[in-house]
Amino acid sequence: MEHLIVYAHPNPDSFNHAILETTVRTLKQKGHEVVVRDLYKIDFQPVLKPQDTAAMKAGQTPEDIKTEQDHIAQADAITFIYPIWWTGMPAILKGYVDRVFSYGFAYAYGEQGIDKLLKGKKGLIINTHGTPKDIYDQIGMTAGLKITSDTGIFDFTGIEPVEHLLFGSVPSAGEAALKDILKQVEAKVASVF
């Protein structure tokens, strides 16, 4: 299976990076081909500009967008790994979605409504956040994050959401708790792919 991981965290020593390493290792152990697109490392430019839209309408997709679209097109599965900041995804990842999941590539409008152009792919999202999970669950934030990402991005474009892992209280978690999270990530990645 061809597996694309889109990763968005600026600190290579972050716990998100440990999640990335665990995910890559687990997938490779299962025989997957894995491509990681570390958005900060590749210095992905997240701002959708008028010239981007004009170029795509003219059938001349900018090269940086085309590169990312090629990775998505070749993937059987796509995993997003990122922290929740201000109750959402980092701006660099939001910009990636804005620019790369474009009309005509990820979705279109047809006679029956929305044409989901990325059908046949599976999607996994792994998030960390500082707020305790119980609080996010109680205020509806967990459900909100799932609907905006799983439904609003993956399902909208035809990617089948297989799981969305959210881990709270990460900055204050002790070493044992962090190790347990990595075990949960490993087990879930192994079971859904």
Rank of each mutant, 00 (worst) to 15 (best):
M1T: 14
H3A: 01
V6C: 00
A8I: 05
A8Q: 06
A8N: 02
P10I: 04
S14V: 00
F15H: 08
N16Y: 07
H17Q: 12
A18Y: 00
A18H: 12
I19K: 01
I19P: 07
L20K: 03
E21I: 07
T22S: 11
R25K: 15
T26M: 06
L27H: 05
K28Y: 05
Q29C: 01
K30A: 15
G31T: 06
G31K: 08
E33I: 04
E33Q: 11
V36R: 08
D38Q: 03
L39N: 09
L39C: 07
I42M: 09
I42H: 02
Q45G: 04
P46A: 08
L48C: 04
K49A: 08
P50S: 08
P50E: 15
A55C: 05
A55N: 05
A58D: 13
G59I: 11
T61M: 06
T61I: 14
T61H: 06
T61S: 10
K66W: 12
K66M: 10
I72G: 12
I72H: 12
Q74M: 04
A77N: 15
I78Q: 05
F80E: 10
I81W: 00
Y82D: 06
P83S: 08
W85F: 11
I92L: 02
I92C: 03
G95Q: 02
D98A: 02
D98I: 01
V100D: 08
G104N: 05
G104Y: 08
G104L: 06
F105C: 12
F105A: 11
F105V: 06
A106H: 06
Y107Q: 10
Y109F: 15
G110R: 06
Q112D: 14
G113K: 13
I114H: 03
K116G: 02
L118D: 10
K119T: 14
G120K: 09
K122H: 06
N127C: 13
T128L: 12
H129D: 01
G130P: 00
P132G: 01
I135G: 00
Q138D: 14
G144F: 10
K146R: 15
I147P: 04
I147V: 14
T151H: 12
T151G: 15
T151A: 15
I153D: 14
I153V: 15
F154I: 02
F156N: 09
G158I: 04
G158S: 08
G158Q: 03
I159P: 10
E160K: 14
V162N: 07
E163K: 14
H164M: 05
H164D: 12
L165S: 07
A173S: 15
A173I: 03
G174A: 01
E175L: 13
A176Y: 09
A177T: 14
L178N: 12
K179H: 14
L182A: 05
L182T: 00
K183H: 04
Q184C: 01
Q184H: 06
K188D: 04
V189Q: 07
